[in-house]
Design a protein around this nucleic acid. Structure first.
Lengths: 233, 233
DNA sequence: GTTTTTCGAGCGAGTGTTCGATATATAAGC
DNA sequence: GCTTATATATCGAACACTCGCTCGAAAAAC
């Protein structure tokens, strides 16, 4: 399940290092990767507890063990650090969701279930990253805000495409609401946004995925046999 | 529709003034109400654009026309200001959702539809307040965080109660997921969280309400005649 | 010996908060 | 009715502090 990509923080930092080779002044990749990993991990931890704005670079310096000046070898401003993290989340979503496995191609129901299951599982593996993106995407300069909106619409477009395909094939009801694709996203987000609540209630990730899949199918499926057709992804 | 209570900023400030009579040093209600109204309106406006933390009290002073010292006649710290706003949102939700009209009492489907419609309409009327509560409830001291969670669970409990009642009466399917009540909340939130998106797509509030009502009913209703039973609240 | 990496004190700007002074409204005295 | 006296309301400069960020020097690596 979901081994098409490595979504550990270290793997994501490798992408990050590659993407910002020009602004990162540390040359040797071995040094850079190890330190960037520590910095990003600390930044996600602190931000998700107090908020990105409330996290001072002195906090980050202390938590990561990297000096103030040392931090600026990896980003040229605090806003750049924000952008680096947000970009990586967007890129990961695109990478994972745009490549459905062969077995779901051409089967709208299976594809829809795969999208739901994969998205939830991805947010589970990248939990600090998604929490960060969700909490910090708002209240920020227009440029960053736009990126967040684009990322949001990208996810929605995957669902919209599958729903449209299913309706064309007669698998989904022709009167399926055009708003459905938009409404799936908040259902998926709730798993990591209200993480503590679901953990407290002992709701497993598989239960959650199955519930959302049923919920969505009840809204769009033509017949009522969806419970048998549910894929475990 | 939804005239059981006055949800204008002025009416909410009146409640606020009453609730914090001890910490607000301005005695004459006429003066206090007018100024508090200006301060809160400016605070909501600035916070929802840049975030509460990013809004300095000098910004607030400038925008409201009240001097620095003048602001402190209405709250003794910036955190208190935050709490005053959050409390008012929670109180309003409780006031409105806890008193369903007689006509929906005893009818789970009508009650469920009323809850959905009323909640969305309330968030529309109090839009800046809900946006504020949603964006700022996170990343804040434990005490404030708890209040936000309690408020969240309060809303959910109204839905849980109706679903339970409907299952007991055989109107809703007995295998309705216990997670459904939790999943309704993010669907309602999307209307004001992604406000710009829905406005851009020319989705009216009535369309949105109807879509969510259908979506939820498809998940829990025993038969398939829900489209005829939908209430316009 | 030269390049690369790391450090942390210091800078100016901006923060939440306080407080004595000023302006304004209400009450009292004659 | 006009002047005091008192209470209320408003102000904004000043305080102590933290912020993002810089930069010359020290340390490490080659």
């Amino acid at each position: 399940m979901l081994d098409i990509d490595d979504l550990t923080t270290e793997a994501l930092c490798r992408y990050m290092l590659d993407r910002h080779r020009d602004t990162i002044s540390v040359q040797k990749p071995e040094f850079a990767l190890r330190k960037l990993n520590v910095i990003i991990a600390a930044a996600l931890d602190l931000s998700n507890r107090k908020g990105f704005q409330a996290m001072s670079l002195r906090d980050l310096s202390r938590a990561s063990g990297v000096s103030m000046g040392g931090l600026y070898a990896y980003f040229d401003s605090k806003t750049t650090l924000l952008n680096m993290i947000l970009s990586e989340v967007t890129a990961a979503v695109q990478r994972v969701l745009s490549t459905p496995p062969d077995k779901v191609q051409g089967d709208p129901v299976a594809h829809l279930n795969w999208l739901i299951a994969t998205h939830v599982q991805m947010t589970e593996q990248m939990q600090p990253w998604f929490t960060f993106a969700f909490m910090e995407a708002k209240n920020f300069p227009p440029a960053e805000r736009r990126k967040a909106i684009d990322s949001e619409e990208l996810t929605e477009s995957y669902f919209a495409a599958v729903l449209k395909d299913g309706m064309a094939k007669g698998v989904f009801r022709p009167d399926t609401s055009p708003l459905l694709a938009a409404l799936i996203k908040p259902l998926l987000q709730d798993w990591y946004v209200k993480r503590a609540k679901y953990r407290r209630r002992r709701v497993t990730i598989d239960t959650y995925i199955a519930t959302v899949q049923d919920f969505v199918q009840a809204a769009c499926l033509a017949d009522q046999t969806h419970k048998d057709q549910r894929a475990t992804a």
